[in-house]
């Protein structure tokens, strides 16, 4: 076994409580990130499904001229975001209303005048459902003189996007705070390890070990602690996912790329904290 790895593993044996505390703190910070990650990922999935169904409906005035309406329909269909434009005449609208609202059928049957306006149902291409894109299409469709009103469910679209942003920001802030505490604890663990081995380090220097050689076991110790913390965090997150997914919601597990990034983040946190502590404290020996 290489010297650095042997020494790093020996450090785990020498100070198991401190190592355990460091790994637990890293795992807590990444656990928080993991939970918010699941939330953000599932909100995104819901959003994607909802987005597919987002369409812009432009209601037309009753006095709109048929040739102008046809021209507009063709024009709107050429917008880059638009997949298709369906023209729903007043009669079709009434028919649809009767079908969709079966229990009120008798009410519609008694009407002498059709109260429903004609409309364009503007369906958007995949990947063009962001609020600002939908709004742009709605604005351009609303610019026609014979368009009375445009609807596209703006409020709830905005709300879902906001929710996703809030979840992401909360994960970053809370996870970041935990990560900072984790780094301080790893730093303390490494400082104690350096203190416990100060005689050895002094002799290493004396007989001509390079700084890299002296630092490597400590960096490796930090890296392994971080990796251990990340693995713990992943287990906790998966446990919570299983509990929630079976009982409360139908959830999707986070993508593999995120899992790997989480593990890497643990390792990087650990090695970063060690590097900072080692550089500062080896100078004093």
């Amino acid at each position: 076994m290489p010297y650095a790895l042997r020494e790093a593993l020996a450090a785990f044996r020498r100070t198991p409580v401190l190592t355990g505390l460091s790994a637990t703190m890293i795992s807590l910070s990444l656990f928080v990130v993991g939970l918010f990650g699941i939330a953000a990922h599932n909100i995104r999935r819901v959003l994607e499904r909802v987005e597919e169904r987002v369409e812009v409906v432009a209601y037309l005035r009753d006095d709109a001229r048929p040739d102008a309406v046809r021209l507009a329909q063709n024009e709107i269909a050429t917008f880059p975001e638009v997949r298709e434009v369906l023209y729903i005449s007043r009669e079709q609208a009434l028919e649809l209303a009767k079908q969709e609202l079966g229990e009120l059928r008798s009410l519609f049957g008694e009407l002498e005048v059709n109260p429903l306006p004609a409309s364009f149902e503007i369906r958007l291409k995949a990947g063009h459902h962001r609020p600002e894109e939908v709004q742009a299409v709605a604005q351009r469709a609303g610019a026609y003189a014979f368009v009375e009103e445009v609807r596209y469910g703006r409020e709830w679209l905005d709300k879902i996007y906001l929710l996703r942003r809030v979840a992401g920001a909360a994960a970053l802030v809370i996870g970041g705070a935990f990560a900072a505490v984790a780094m301080l604890i790893i730093g303390a663990a490494v400082r104690m390890a350096i203190f416990a081995r100060r005689d050895e380090i002094a002799i290493m220097r004396l007989v001509g070990a390079t700084d890299g050689f002296v630092q490597r076991p400590f960096l490796l110790e930090g890296f392994l602690t971080g990796l251990l913390g990340a693995a713990l965090a992943l287990s906790f997150t998966f446990l919570v996912y299983r509990i929630l997914s079976g009982a409360v919601f139908q959830l999707e597990w986070i993508p593999d790329g995120w899992t790997l990034s989480g593990l890497a983040a643990g390792g990087v946190l650990g090695i970063g904290a060690s590097a900072a502590a080692v550089r500062r404290h080896l100078r004093g020996i």
Partner: peptide, 19 residues
């Protein structure tokens, strides 16, 4: 710094307190 490490390999050092 790296040359200092290499130089120290050519220098033996003993102390009163053995270390």
């Amino acid at each position: 710094p790296r040359e200092i490490s290499m130089l120290r390999r050519k220098i033996g050092y003993v102390f009163q307190d053995f270390r």
